[in-house]
Protein backbone atom coordinates (compact mmCIF):
# COMPACT_ATOMS: atom_id res chain seq x y z
CA UNK A 1 0.00 0.00 0.00
CA UNK A 2 1.07 3.55 -0.66
CA UNK A 3 2.23 5.38 2.46
CA UNK A 4 1.02 8.81 3.36
CA UNK A 5 3.79 11.25 2.68
CA UNK A 6 4.36 14.89 3.39
CA UNK A 7 4.50 15.61 -0.31
CA UNK A 8 0.78 15.34 -0.88
CA UNK A 9 0.17 19.03 -1.36
CA UNK A 10 2.51 19.21 -4.34
CA UNK A 11 0.23 18.46 -7.20
CA UNK A 12 0.68 21.23 -9.69
CA UNK A 13 3.77 20.67 -11.81
CA UNK A 14 7.41 20.71 -10.84
CA UNK A 15 8.04 24.33 -9.95
CA UNK A 16 5.75 24.64 -6.92
CA UNK A 17 7.37 21.52 -5.50
CA UNK A 18 10.79 23.11 -5.18
CA UNK A 19 11.46 24.24 -1.64
CA UNK A 20 13.91 26.65 -0.14
CA UNK A 21 15.92 23.67 1.24
CA UNK A 22 16.50 22.34 -2.29
CA UNK A 23 17.65 25.71 -3.46
CA UNK A 24 20.04 26.28 -0.54
CA UNK A 25 21.47 22.77 -0.82
CA UNK A 26 22.00 23.20 -4.56
CA UNK A 27 23.83 26.52 -4.09
CA UNK A 28 25.91 25.16 -1.20
CA UNK A 29 27.09 22.14 -3.18
CA UNK A 30 27.76 24.31 -6.22
CA UNK A 31 29.95 26.68 -4.21
CA UNK A 32 31.80 23.79 -2.54
CA UNK A 33 32.56 21.92 -5.75
CA UNK A 34 33.46 24.96 -7.85
CA UNK A 35 35.57 26.27 -4.97
CA UNK A 36 37.20 22.85 -4.80
CA UNK A 37 37.95 22.96 -8.51
CA UNK A 38 39.59 26.34 -8.17
CA UNK A 39 41.57 25.04 -5.23
CA UNK A 40 42.76 21.99 -7.15
CA UNK A 41 43.40 23.52 -10.59
CA UNK A 42 43.51 27.25 -9.97
CA UNK A 43 46.85 27.44 -8.14
CA UNK A 44 48.72 25.84 -11.01
CA UNK A 45 49.92 28.47 -13.42
CA UNK A 46 51.58 25.96 -15.66
CA UNK A 47 50.28 22.51 -16.23
CA UNK A 48 53.13 20.40 -14.97
CA UNK A 49 56.41 19.17 -16.30
CA UNK A 50 56.45 15.47 -15.38
CA UNK A 51 54.22 12.54 -16.16
CA UNK A 52 54.03 10.13 -13.24
CA UNK A 53 52.61 6.68 -13.85
CA UNK A 54 51.67 4.52 -10.88
CA UNK A 55 50.74 0.87 -11.20
CA UNK A 56 49.34 -0.86 -8.12
CA UNK A 57 50.11 2.26 -6.13
CA UNK A 58 53.82 2.07 -6.87
CA UNK A 59 55.43 4.77 -8.96
CA UNK A 60 56.72 3.02 -12.06
CA UNK A 61 57.53 5.90 -14.38
CA UNK A 62 58.47 9.52 -13.90
CA UNK A 63 58.89 11.01 -17.34
CA UNK A 64 59.38 14.47 -18.78
CA UNK A 65 56.19 15.64 -20.49
CA UNK A 66 58.11 17.39 -23.27
CA UNK A 67 59.75 14.23 -24.62
CA UNK A 68 57.43 12.25 -26.91
CA UNK A 69 57.25 8.63 -25.88
CA UNK A 70 55.00 5.57 -25.93
CA UNK A 71 55.02 3.42 -22.81
CA UNK A 72 53.78 -0.16 -22.86
CA UNK A 73 52.33 -1.11 -19.47
CA UNK A 74 51.13 -4.53 -20.74
CA UNK A 75 47.46 -3.73 -20.07
CA UNK A 76 47.68 -0.12 -21.20
CA UNK A 77 49.52 1.77 -23.88
CA UNK A 78 50.32 5.30 -22.72
CA UNK A 79 51.41 7.96 -25.18
CA UNK A 80 53.15 11.25 -24.42
CA UNK A 81 53.13 13.74 -27.29
CA UNK A 82 53.20 17.53 -27.64
CA UNK A 83 53.13 18.00 -23.85
CA UNK A 84 49.98 15.93 -23.58
CA UNK A 85 49.27 12.43 -22.34
CA UNK A 86 46.68 9.86 -23.29
CA UNK A 87 45.95 6.19 -22.94
CA UNK A 88 46.26 5.02 -26.51
CA UNK A 89 44.86 1.58 -25.93
CA UNK A 90 43.74 -0.59 -23.04
CA UNK A 91 42.64 -4.19 -22.70
CA UNK A 92 39.92 -3.44 -20.16
CA UNK A 93 36.22 -3.75 -20.85
CA UNK A 94 34.84 -0.22 -21.01
CA UNK A 95 38.07 1.61 -22.01
CA UNK A 96 37.06 4.73 -20.09
CA UNK A 97 40.69 5.79 -19.83
CA UNK A 98 41.05 5.65 -23.62
CA UNK A 99 37.86 7.66 -24.10
CA UNK A 100 39.18 10.37 -21.81
CA UNK A 101 41.58 11.29 -24.60
CA UNK A 102 44.49 13.72 -24.34
CA UNK A 103 45.07 15.54 -21.06
CA UNK A 104 47.60 18.26 -20.32
CA UNK A 105 46.81 18.50 -16.61
CA UNK A 106 45.10 16.48 -13.91
CA UNK A 107 45.03 12.72 -14.08
CA UNK A 108 43.75 9.62 -15.82
CA UNK A 109 42.73 6.79 -13.54
CA UNK A 110 42.22 3.26 -14.79
CA UNK A 111 40.55 1.31 -12.05
CA UNK A 112 40.51 -2.22 -13.53
CA UNK A 113 44.27 -2.13 -14.10
CA UNK A 114 45.00 0.04 -11.08
CA UNK A 115 46.92 2.58 -13.11
CA UNK A 116 47.12 6.26 -12.21
CA UNK A 117 48.64 8.73 -14.65
CA UNK A 118 49.23 12.14 -13.12
CA UNK A 119 50.73 15.29 -14.59
CA UNK A 120 52.64 17.04 -11.86
CA UNK A 121 54.69 20.15 -11.63
CA UNK A 122 57.88 19.22 -9.89
CA UNK A 123 59.34 22.52 -8.87
CA UNK A 124 62.14 23.54 -6.64
CA UNK A 125 62.18 25.24 -3.36
CA UNK A 126 65.69 26.20 -2.53
CA UNK A 127 64.75 27.88 0.69
CA UNK A 128 64.42 24.48 2.32
CA UNK A 129 67.30 22.67 0.62
CA UNK A 130 70.48 22.29 2.66
CA UNK A 131 72.76 20.99 -0.09
CA UNK A 132 72.69 19.95 -3.76
CA UNK A 133 74.28 16.91 -5.35
CA UNK A 134 75.04 17.01 -9.06
Amino acid sequence: MIKKTNLDFLKFGLLPQIRIGDFLLFILLLILSIGGMFYVYGGETNNGNRVIIEVNNIEQFNLPIDVDKVIDLRHLLVEIKDKKVRVKDADCQNKLCVKQGWIDRGSIICLPNRVVIIIKNIKNNHAVIDAISG
Binding site: P64, N124, I129, I132, S133, G134
Partner: peptide, 19 residues
Protein backbone atom coordinates in the same frame (compact mmCIF):
# COMPACT_ATOMS: atom_id res chain seq x y z
CA UNK B 1 66.76 15.47 8.60
CA UNK B 2 69.00 17.34 6.19
CA UNK B 3 67.36 18.00 2.82
CA UNK B 4 69.55 17.31 -0.18
CA UNK B 5 68.47 18.19 -3.72
CA UNK B 6 69.49 16.23 -6.81
CA UNK B 7 70.17 18.42 -9.82
CA UNK B 8 67.94 18.06 -12.87
CA UNK B 9 70.34 17.02 -15.66
CA UNK B 10 68.74 19.09 -18.44
CA UNK B 11 67.36 21.92 -16.35
CA UNK B 12 68.81 25.25 -15.39
CA UNK B 13 71.69 25.25 -12.94
CA UNK B 14 69.41 25.41 -9.91
CA UNK B 15 66.66 23.05 -11.11
CA UNK B 16 66.19 20.01 -8.93
CA UNK B 17 64.69 16.70 -9.93
CA UNK B 18 64.19 15.34 -6.40
CA UNK B 19 64.82 16.15 -2.77
Amino acid sequence: NWLVGIRAPRGKLDDLIAV
